[in-house]
Design a protein around this nucleic acid. Structure first.
Length: 619
DNA sequence: GTAATCACG
DNA sequence: ACGTACGTGATTACT
């Protein structure tokens, strides 16, 4: 038996690394008596993050409590696999920090279905996020194992991941190759593998005590674990990639990027991503850029973003000729080259990189990422695919014989605002089934309300949710500050409860440590200099919890196998063509309920085989 | 690492 | 006292 000793918070800990059958028997003996010591921490070390690539390997599985860890070398196969497998399947409850990752690894590479593991998992990352969702750079304690261990367990706890990258370098490996290349018996690798479970184990009682002290309800903790599990099922299912189309588009975009980059070089811009080169070249052509404060960035450089370049190229935001000026050919070439290169690197190339051997992408869904617990999707970032044309979304398909559907909440944040701030007239509008922005416009303008009025008050409503001021709203809408000011004052007159509730929430937060307690009991920390953001946080998090509750309804209704992605106020799914309308109706039903007397409603679109069929020119 | 940029709700 | 646009992921240039 290899044993490593390490002092954690002044106490000696032991990390055991079994070398033979007798050592594994000792592990099983420890494991079978571990029930006296509460839930066991569980972790894995693997060859990297590309869980779905064909040469991915599970290297070790670690188990531990507050002073003892066992690092089982899964990679050695035979009895090592047998022992770890036996422990994993024995029905015991486990603590995992960031469980969705280990669920996915163990489901795919250890034959432990997430249906078996997830219901007996407590995720310490979820617990930490319910205490304080902020990252260290936002003034929080973070939700990573390292910052949390430093806060709750031992300020001197090693940065097990960070320190290992230094070890990788000393072995001639990199961050990318180290996890796969480090020898299985490397002492630091094994010690740190063990420390991860020891730290997780020690985090647990500290977080439980904190949650208890803060009166965070168990119902919320359970709810988040269910949502995490549902999202893990969606990740495991993944989404079909149209490989031929994606390869073709990737090549087309590469040609497009290179062609326009070539054009840019004829204007002395050798690198279209260098704004310094671009600024001097545009000035040499006689263009006026960065002359006023508004046309410069924070650091004083001339602003050269998409709106600026589109205007120079005489294009509107739909990339159509305006006819206001002679198009600047350099600006035109640079935006086209940059867009093609970005679409390729962010989308098509990533799709091809992360696809599994069957051509499916399995995006990582972080079910409580933002401060408001909004979800995020990465590898690839499927929440941020271009919506103005369908080319990128066409890469993603429904299953064979299925079609893509999308059901979204209708104006969810406005409804949530009406419900939470108890906005009397707004609630009446929703209760009457009205289009809320038209309803508002009619309340203020009267009979002669036009589509332009609707648009104006929609902007004001969005401004209320974001906490925007008159100058920002005016800039957004293009209207004058006078007109915008009048519209905002009229809005405040018909819906006075919003401002009142904002002040009340801010006052309450000042009395309770700058934390707003959401309608679901979630703790939303506020920044002292941005207290006005409480309205946004309350609405955004309540809207997120509406989606979370809907996902739970959908699972209960047997719809989880169809679900593919949660996108803030929308779910995307793949449904058998013949039943697609019925499934869409069922999903709508799962997204329909009341919140404080305000109807929350949903609306579906059902398309063809590709996600792109719901977007752009195809639609 | 920070800033700038661009993609989304 | 007043007013403040919110939340993400990803890439690239530059220090």
């Amino acid at each position: 038996m290899q044993v490593y000793r390490h002092v954690v918070a002044g106490e000696l800990t032991h990390t055991h690394v079994p070398q033979d059958g007798a050592d594994l028997d000792a592990f099983m003996d420890w494991f079978s008596h571990a029930s006296y010591r509460g839930p066991i921490a569980l972790d894995t070390e693997t060859t990297g993050l590309d869980i779905y690539s064909p040469n991915y390997r599970l290297r070790t599985v670690q188990f531990g409590d507050r002073d003892t860890a066992w690092v089982i070398h899964w990679e050695r196969g035979g009895d090592f696999v047998e022992s770890a497998h036996c422990a994993l399947r024995n029905g015991r409850r486990f603590l995992i920090h960031n469980a969705p990752f280990d669920w996915a690894v163990l489901d795919r590479h250890a034959g432990v279905p997430l249906e078996s593991l997830a219901p007996r998992t407590v995720d310490t990352r979820i617990l930490a996020g319910l205490v304080d969702p902020r990252q260290p750079q936002e003034g929080g304690r973070g939700t990573g194992l390292k910052p949390l261990s430093a806060w709750y367990v031992d300020p001197g706890a090693p940065d097990t991941q960070g320190d290992l990258t230094a070890v990788f370098r000393s072995l001639g490996l990199t961050k990318a190759t180290g996890w796969a290349g480090i020898p299985l018996d490397h002492p630091t690798y094994n010690l740190y593998a063990g420390l991860d479970v020891i730290l997780t184990s020690r985090l647990y009682p500290a977080l439980l005590a904190e949650l208890d002290m803060l009166c965070v309800r168990q119902r919320l903790i359970d709810y988040e674990h269910e949502i995490a599990r549902i999202c893990a099922v969606m990740q495991r299912r993944g989404m079909v990639l149209d490989l031929d189309y994606t390869r073709q588009l990737d090549a087309d975009l590469q040609r497009e990027a290179e062609h326009y980059a070539e054009v840019a070089t004829t204007y002395a811009v050798g690198n279209v991503n260098s704004n310094a080169q671009l600024a001097s070249a545009l000035r040499a052509m006689g263009e006026v850029i960065g002359e006023t404060a508004e046309t410069r960035t924070k650091s004083g450089a001339p602003k050269l973003d998409k709106p600026v370049l589109l205007a120079l190229a005489d294009l509107n935001k739909d990339w159509k000729r305006v006819g206001l000026r002679e198009p600047n050919p350099l600006a035109d070439a640079v935006i086209r080259s940059k867009r093609a290169a970005k679409w390729r690197s962010a989308y098509t190339s990533t799709f091809l990189d992360v696809a599994d051997s069957e051509g499916r992408v399995h995006p990582f869904i972080n079910s409580m990422q933002a401060r408001t617990a909004r979800m995020s999707i990465t590898r690839p970032a499927l929440q941020t695919l271009p919506g103005d044309e369908a080319r990128i979304r066409r890469c993603l398909l429904a299953e064979p014989g299925h079609v893509i559907g999308s059901t979204d909440f209708q104006a969810i944040e406005m409804r949530v605002l009406a419900a939470l701030a108890d906005v009397r007239k707004m609630k009446a509008g929703f209760a009457a089934g009205e289009d809320i922005h038209m309803f508002t416009a009619r309340l203020i303008v009267g009979e002669e309300t036009t589509e332009a009025h609707r648009k104006q008050f929609k902007t004001v409503g969005l401004g209320k949710i974001y906490g925007g001021g008159i100058p920002t709203l005016a800039r957004q809408s293009g209207a004058s500050e006078e007109a915008t000011g009048r519209a905002v004052r009229a809005y405040d007159t018909v819906y006075p409860e919003i401002k009142r509730m904002s002040r009340r929430w801010q006052r309450q937060a000042r009395e309770t440590g700058l934390v707003h307690l959401s309608v679901t009991g979630r703790r939303l920390p506020l920044d002292r200099d941005r207290m006005y953001a409480v309205v946004n946080y309350a609405c955004q998090s309540a809207a997120r919890d509406c989606l979370g509750q809907s996902l739970i309804h959908m699972e209960e209704a047997g719809l989880l196998p169809y679900l593919r992605l949660p996108i803030h106020d929308e779910v995307v799914y793949s449904a058998p063509q013949a039943e697609s309308m019925e499934i869409a109706r069922e999903i709508e039903r799962c997204m329909t309920f009341e919140l404080h007397g305000v109807p929350i409603t949903a609306d579906s679109k059902v398309g063809g085989r590709s996600w792109g069929s719901l977007y752009g020119a195809d639609h």
